[in-house]
Design a protein around this nucleic acid. Sequence first.
DNA 1: TTAACTGTATTATATGATTAATACAGTTTG
DNA 2: CAAACTGTATTAATCATATAATACAGTTAA
Lengths: 125, 125
Amino acid sequence: MILFDDFTMEGKNPIYQQIVIYLKRRVAAGSITNGDELPSRRMLSALLSVNPNTVQKAYRILEEEGLIQSHSGAKSVMVVDEETIARIRGQLAEEEAGQLVSAMRAMGISREEAHRLIDRYWENG
Amino acid sequence: MILFDDFTMEGKNPIYQQIVIYLKRRVAAGSITNGDELPSRRMLSALLSVNPNTVQKAYRILEEEGLIQSHSGAKSVMVVDEETIARIRGQLAEEEAGQLVSAMRAMGISREEAHRLIDRYWENG
DNA sequence: TTAACTGTATTATATGATTAATACAGTTTG
DNA sequence: CAAACTGTATTAATCATATAATACAGTTAA
């Protein structure tokens, strides 16, 4: 059973998107593997203090992307293979790196300075 | 007159926030200096094909942060000193670096791998 | 001076995100 | 079997974002 024990609500992004990205990151990290059971919509909504519909929206999106399989009446499970991991990992890493680079460039921050900033946040943060 | 010629609408963020961050980044980069005139709400809204109220919201937020001064009837101008530049620069760089580091960590990506990803996007993009 | 601009304000409408309260059919388990 | 869970669906209400259509008073420039 996937626990969501290190899930935290952060920033302004919609909650359903935060759930989606949380699960994708754990797939990328390898801490979620094929067949892992997800908490039910009702359980997770209670744990996060959000509406069951919000969790349902996140799960539906992941199902449309092929990362979740749901049989009506039974618990939903993750569907993960090596190709999926590589795809998700590339997808998320691209977004993050691309966003940081364009931001730093727009601010006139050099590549070396950007590396130093990241190193500083890697230690503390 | 600030031209907005390299402004592009990107991502899902509210438009008024994109305008705010665009101007802050140019302040951080030094390509906007003290006293620079802003385009009027109506002109910018026409240029970006958005509603004047959306531009007004962005300008109002910047005015509340002290980066813009508006005299009713005349063009609004930027208010920028060295302290402001340093503050904005630190603020934006912190956000970006912090976000990337927590994302990479959650995905189990090493510091060295993160640097390589950034270098790759610095060249291409 | 006056016409064309400026900032500012108000009211209305539409859409997306979220909450809320249910309902129903399939499954798991005691 | 029956109770308690499961996924799924519907309808209604609230809030933020964004658009739309004006209105008014101050500034600028021909």
